[in-house]
């Protein structure tokens, strides 16, 4: 299934856990250090360096770009580390996040309330994912190196829906389905 950013409600409604999605459009990168800064700005009531309404944040710290490339290998990092920062971002209208690994119960509940989804990219498939990134530009915190906030233009980035609007969780359901007692 092809979808575009900013994410439209009608597209989000269609997504079910386990769906393969090819995402195109603008997305933003942020990891631990950048999240801490964004949350501090929100708490202080200041403007943010990136828009959040309808947007998607990708949890990634890419490898440096070789001279002939727009970005280095760029697979997802583990999402639970961002669980303690995501709630104010969801309140500001963030509609999707991309990472790997499960979200906490409270994050899943707030995502469902705010009608946001969580996608996984395949952890470690970093060279393959980099091929779908057509442009990359640092838009905030260059001093953070790999942790700087980047604006990415992606074309058909391969993702899997992990948490949908109905509150389902692919990690829980997948494990139960294939467990042998």
């Amino acid at each position: 299934m092809h979808i575009k950013t900013p994410l439209a409600e009608k597209d989000l409604e269609k997504l079910k856990i386990g769906d393969r999605v090819l995402l195109s459009g603008t997305i933003y990168t942020a990891r631990d250090a950048a999240h801490e800064k964004l949350v501090k700005l929100i708490e202080a009531g200041k403007d943010l360096p990136i828009p959040l309404s309808g947007q998607v944040i990708y949890y990634v710290g890419p490898a440096p770009a070789k001279p002939d490339k727009v970005i280095g290998s760029a697979g997802p990092t583990t999402s639970y580390r961002m669980d303690s920062f995501i709630l104010p971002l969801l309140e500001k209208g963030l509609k999707g996040t991309i990472g790997k690994g499960p979200r906490s119960k409270i994050v899943r509940e707030v995502m469902q309330n705010q009608q946001a989804v969580y996608f996984a990219a395949v952890g470690g498939a970093a060279a393959l994912i980099a091929r779908s990134i057509k442009k990359a530009e640092i838009v905030a915190y260059p001093e953070l190196g790999p942790e700087a906030i980047r604006k990415l233009e992606v074309e058909e980035m391969p993702l899997i829906v992990v948490n949908d609007l109905a509150g389902n969780d692919l990690y829980q359901q997948g494990r139960t389905k294939y467990k042998i007692d």
């Binding site: 990634v60 710290g61 697979g75 970093a126």
Partner: peptide, 15 residues
Amino acid sequence: NAQIAASENVPVCQD
């Protein structure tokens, strides 16, 4: 991914 990394001489994983 492993094939792409090997053919382009880029890291298999960004980490």
